[in-house]
Design a protein around this nucleic acid. Structure first.
Lengths: 127, 127
DNA sequence: TTGATTGTACTATGTATCATAGTACACTGT
DNA sequence: ACAGTGTACTATGATACATAGTACAATCAA
């Protein structure tokens, strides 16, 4: 399904969250499609089931997944995932931090703008 | 000198690092100007001296400060602070993470670009 | 109905990071 | 000599994370 980078500064559960978000947003996971079980995905990633469960719980809280006792966990419809004001401002804070660092390092405004343009263009499908 | 936000997700030492970088880059601290001693700044911020020392050590490693045994710690010349490739790519990774989050949340590309433009424009002096 | 599968909820353990507390030592300038 | 400075320790507590193991309830297929 995907891979975990143990050397990443992101926690494992956070990496799982992000990768699954990617799969859902890009439509690789169809809305309503069944996710692997907590135990299966944990086995595939050689990771603890509790860690996967944590990721699933977070994704459900954010509306990317929904679960049914005894049946499984399913991908939600990306159209219906409402971005909360909190989530957006958290993301904005991450951008601000990154820009701060570049500013402190003396990277020029022009270079920074170019860098961001590259990052955005990496996602050709971003409308 | 500045303030610490205990509720921030950033660690205290990281906040000190960032705030001092800001003071140096903006020229509020003149090159060669003496920084408050570890103990003084710790007292002012009601923070442990070890925490301030950690921040000073990091800032020295990154070239923002230089120290002289028994004399004190001093602000470096911003002109001479060389941005390492590592530092820049770390900052770039922060930007990528923030953009990822916005993408996952379904924020449009246009809105994202507007948001970034605002963030950059907040720093009027950024050349 | 039985059994396998699934989500869920615990407790316990180990590790890492961070901040604090306290002590000590070496260097510098007055 | 003395006060102020950076620096280096050890120890403690708090928190977050991942792992290990167990248990239970709901669901579905045989």
């Amino acid at each position: 399904m995907f891979a975990i980078d143990l050397k990443s500064r992101k926690s494992i559960s956070e990496q799982i969250v992000d990768q699954i978000k990617e799969l859902i947003v890009t439509g690789v996971m169809e809305p309503g499609e069944k996710m692997p079980s907590v135990r299966d995905l944990a086995g595939e990633l050689t990771v603890n089931p509790n860690t996967v469960q944590k990721a699933y719980r977070l994704l459900e809280q954010q509306g990317f997944l929904y679960t049914a006792q005894g049946r499984g966990t399913f991908a939600a419809d990306p159209e219906e995932i409402a971005a909360s004001r909190e989530d957006v401002s958290r993301a904005k804070a991450m951008l601000r931090d990154g820009l701060d660092q570049l500013y402190y390092l003396g990277v020029s405004r022009k270079e920074t703008e170019k860098m961001i343009d590259e990052l955005i263009t990496e996602r050709e499908d971003w409308t």
